[in-house]
């Protein structure tokens, strides 16, 4: 119960920001930064460093030594003169990561997406919808790709169509954003504030 009251008091500190920035809000914010970073760090130490590096070493699994040493080079960033050594593990992660990225990304977000637009449709409604979808995708791409060259009437018309479709999509996103934000308020009132009344 005392804990719940402290929670409520801190929430009031946070809500006080709506009227004016004040020391109570700042304090709560800084406390939160410390605790969340602390929790995140703790989990990485516990489920990362200890579980994936120390435990294997303890059980005699030596395969973690080389990546472990590479990883330890990140510690060199702490000192200015040796900081360049940390670039080696970074280069390893970046290079292999970039290589792994290319194939599956193209397949997931380009090939499969394009083939979805060519899939079978039946009935007049679906055909109209598919056409609208196709035009909206094409016209917005046109707007971005040919943003420099808007000479002919067709350029302007088609890029304009792209803008209209984009406005529809942004409007939908805005509507959904309103929904998200309101839900956050509902939850905090429901789960904390109303518990006291």
């Amino acid at each position: 119960m005392i804990l719940d009251l402290i929670t409520l008091a801190l929430i009031i500190c946070i809500f006080s920001f709506l009227f004016k920035d004040n020391p109570f809000f700042k304090f709560t914010e800084r406390l939160l930064v410390g605790v969340s970073a602390g929790y995140g760090f703790l989990i990485i130490i516990r489920d990362g460093f200890l579980a994936k590096f120390v435990d294997p070493l303890r059980t005699g699994d030596l395969s973690v030594i080389i990546p472990g040493l590479l990883g330890l080079m990140f510690v060199f960033t702490l000192f200015r003169r040796t900081a360049f050594l940390a670039k080696y593990p970074l280069a390893f992660l970046l290079g292999t990561g970039a290589g792994m990225e290319i194939g599956p990304r193209i397949e997931t977000s380009i090939i499969k997406q394009i083939s979805a637009m060519g899939s079978h449709v039946s009935g007049p409604v679906e055909i109209i919808n598919r056409t609208v979808l196709f035009i909206s995708a094409l016209s917005s791409l046109y707007y971005f790709l040919f943003a420099v060259r808007k000479n002919t009437k067709f350029d302007r018309f088609f890029a304009g169509t792209g803008i209209v479709f984009m406005m529809i999509a942004f409007g939908a996103t805005f509507g959904y954003t309103v929904m998200s934000r309101i839900s956050l308020l509902i939850d905090i009132i429901d789960s904390v504030v109303l518990r006291f009344f």
Binding site: I44, G48, A51, K52, G97
Partner: peptide, 9 residues
């Protein structure tokens, strides 16, 4: 199972 580092890897 909780968290494990490495993300995409």
């Amino acid at each position: 199972l909780g968290y494990v580092p490495g993300e995409k890897s």
